Simulated assay, not measured.
Amino acid sequence: MFVIAKRMALAQCDRSFRPHTANTDMMSDLAEMRKVLVLYTGGTIGMQKNHNGVYAPVPEVFASKVKTCQELHDYELARIYSIRDHELITKALHCNKVITYQIQEYQPLLASSNMTAKEWITIAETIEKNYHDFDGFVILQGTDTMAYTSSVLSFMFKNLNKPIILTGSQIPIFETPSDAKNNFLYSLVFASCSDIPEVCVFFANRLLRGNRVKKVHNSQIIAFETPNYHILAETGLHVKMYRNFMLPKMERGMLSVFTNLCTRVGILHIFPTLSRTQLLSFLEPTLEGVVLITYGVGNIPSDRQDLIDVLRNAVGRGVTVVNVTQCLRGSVAVLYETGHRMEEIGIIPCYDITVEAAYTKLMVICGMEKKSEERAELMKQVMRGEMTIQPY
């Protein structure tokens, strides 16, 4: 557990958001200061090679490195604005603002493959504790489980009215070249100068909805996509904001954070030789929810009555089973007899949701509700823009 130590139809664009650097003497002393809290959990962005020649997290060096990057910390602005030693500052001339931020480094720093529900809860609680003191939040973590973190946080926060931006890098900030500085800088800009009321991932010049992302490459710079949803923004000479794809800002309601995550949830990939014994073993009595990853538009073998009976019995004893396609793009739909059999026995179609979003949504809902009927109804609803309900 962490301890805090220190492509759809073309959208209309808002092109007025234009971050770029400028000389300090061009900055007005009266420029508004925006505050961002950065939670550094680990990941490639701050790793260095160890004595074995492999990358590993190194504590208490990341913030010092960031201070040496002119794009990320401006010493002249630090003098003008009299910021404290533990703060950093950079410019956002496009909106005549400066960004001051603090980096809270977690202990231990983790490779993201070691992230669990405990770390997600710690992150959410840290943001809740500091919610009224900052304009936005940036979470630095490894890319392997970033889609899980961004998805679960989107469901844990209700009535969110400030940006929470997750980012990392494929190449550490200590190396040249690296994608780390660009990803970090623009994450700070979106967290401080935008009014996007949702959890997002910024990576490789694109802002993506957090519960729609998937990691699609393990080494290329463009590591994330939202296969079934439009991007929210993209950066370049100008920043284009696709506002009609963003969640509306909440006008009423105080922020609430749900941290009672149910870990008795699993993911099962359907495969041709799946046996009744294997399925029974997976659907053990303590399991409360299952993401079933099925063929095509949501199919399983219709002639395997043994598998259908096991699934029917699981639903009957209260296990919430949801149906998600194995395909990168497309939606679950009842177009074939095999899919119809699934819906008949009470398995819930989740349309174009990602596996990561379905799994984390199920964790939240199973922690929130005890009755299987109520869980099923909530899984059918769009909570944070995570899926598009499509008529069959």
Results as ranks from 00 to 15, higher is better:
residue 295 Y to Q: 06
residue 99 I to C: 04
residue 208 L to R: 01
residue 14 D to Y: 00
residue 27 M to C: 15
residue 31 A to L: 02
residue 286 T to Y: 07
residue 140 L to M: 09
residue 173 I to A: 08
residue 96 N to A: 10
residue 267 I to L: 13
residue 259 T to Y: 09
residue 212 R to Y: 06
residue 297 V to F: 04
residue 337 E to A: 09
residue 303 D to R: 02
residue 222 I to T: 11
residue 67 K to N: 04
residue 81 Y to L: 13
residue 355 V to F: 00
residue 15 R to I: 05
residue 152 V to M: 07
residue 146 M to D: 06
residue 165 I to K: 02
residue 99 I to Y: 00
residue 278 Q to S: 12
residue 204 A to N: 15
residue 48 Q to M: 07
residue 128 E to K: 15
residue 377 E to N: 09
residue 292 L to D: 07
residue 24 T to P: 04
residue 52 N to H: 08
residue 58 V to T: 13
residue 93 L to W: 04
residue 317 R to S: 09
residue 280 L to F: 01
residue 363 M to A: 08
residue 332 V to G: 04
residue 275 S to N: 07
residue 145 T to K: 03
residue 272 P to H: 08
residue 293 I to A: 05
residue 24 T to I: 12
residue 260 N to C: 10
residue 94 H to F: 13
residue 91 K to N: 03
residue 43 G to E: 09
residue 314 A to V: 01
residue 331 S to G: 03
residue 320 T to I: 10
residue 311 L to K: 02
residue 127 I to R: 11
residue 107 Q to F: 05
residue 307 L to G: 08
residue 321 V to L: 13
residue 164 I to C: 08
residue 386 E to Q: 07
residue 148 Y to P: 06
residue 256 S to C: 05
residue 208 L to S: 00
residue 260 N to L: 10
residue 142 G to E: 08
residue 311 L to N: 10
residue 126 T to M: 12
residue 197 P to M: 13
residue 138 V to E: 08
residue 391 P to G: 02
residue 280 L to E: 15
residue 8 M to S: 11
residue 228 N to T: 07
residue 127 I to G: 09
residue 136 G to S: 03
residue 173 I to V: 01
residue 154 S to K: 01
residue 231 I to G: 01
residue 59 P to C: 05
residue 361 K to T: 10
residue 296 G to F: 08
residue 332 V to N: 02
residue 345 I to C: 09
residue 184 F to W: 02
residue 159 N to I: 00
residue 129 K to W: 08
residue 60 E to Q: 14
residue 67 K to E: 12
residue 139 I to S: 03
residue 187 S to M: 00
residue 123 I to L: 12
residue 12 Q to K: 14
residue 79 R to W: 12
residue 201 V to L: 11
residue 324 V to I: 15
residue 196 I to W: 09
residue 353 I to Y: 04
residue 297 V to W: 01
residue 79 R to H: 12
residue 219 S to W: 10
residue 57 P to Q: 07
residue 392 Y to K: 06
residue 41 T to W: 11
residue 153 L to N: 08
residue 160 L to K: 05
residue 274 L to W: 15
residue 367 G to A: 06
residue 277 T to N: 11
residue 14 D to P: 05
residue 135 D to P: 09
residue 388 T to I: 03
residue 318 G to V: 12
residue 191 A to I: 00
residue 287 L to N: 09
residue 383 M to E: 14
residue 363 M to R: 02
residue 52 N to W: 02
residue 139 I to W: 06
residue 288 E to W: 05
residue 147 A to K: 07
residue 23 N to S: 14
residue 42 G to C: 02
residue 88 L to S: 15
residue 81 Y to G: 09
residue 17 F to Y: 15
residue 152 V to Q: 03
residue 286 T to H: 13
residue 150 S to D: 14
residue 139 I to M: 02
residue 20 H to V: 08
residue 264 R to N: 14
residue 348 I to M: 13
residue 374 E to F: 12
residue 277 T to K: 14
residue 216 V to F: 01
residue 81 Y to A: 11
residue 344 E to L: 11
residue 8 M to K: 11
residue 175 E to P: 11
residue 362 L to Q: 03
residue 59 P to K: 12
residue 206 R to C: 03
residue 234 E to I: 00
residue 42 G to Q: 04
residue 91 K to Y: 06
residue 87 E to P: 05
residue 128 E to H: 14
residue 351 Y to Q: 13
residue 173 I to L: 07
residue 105 E to P: 09
residue 102 Q to F: 03
residue 216 V to K: 00
residue 380 K to Y: 11
residue 69 C to D: 09
residue 112 S to Y: 09
residue 265 V to P: 04
residue 150 S to A: 15
residue 21 T to S: 15
residue 369 E to L: 12
residue 21 T to P: 04
residue 89 I to G: 14
residue 370 K to N: 14
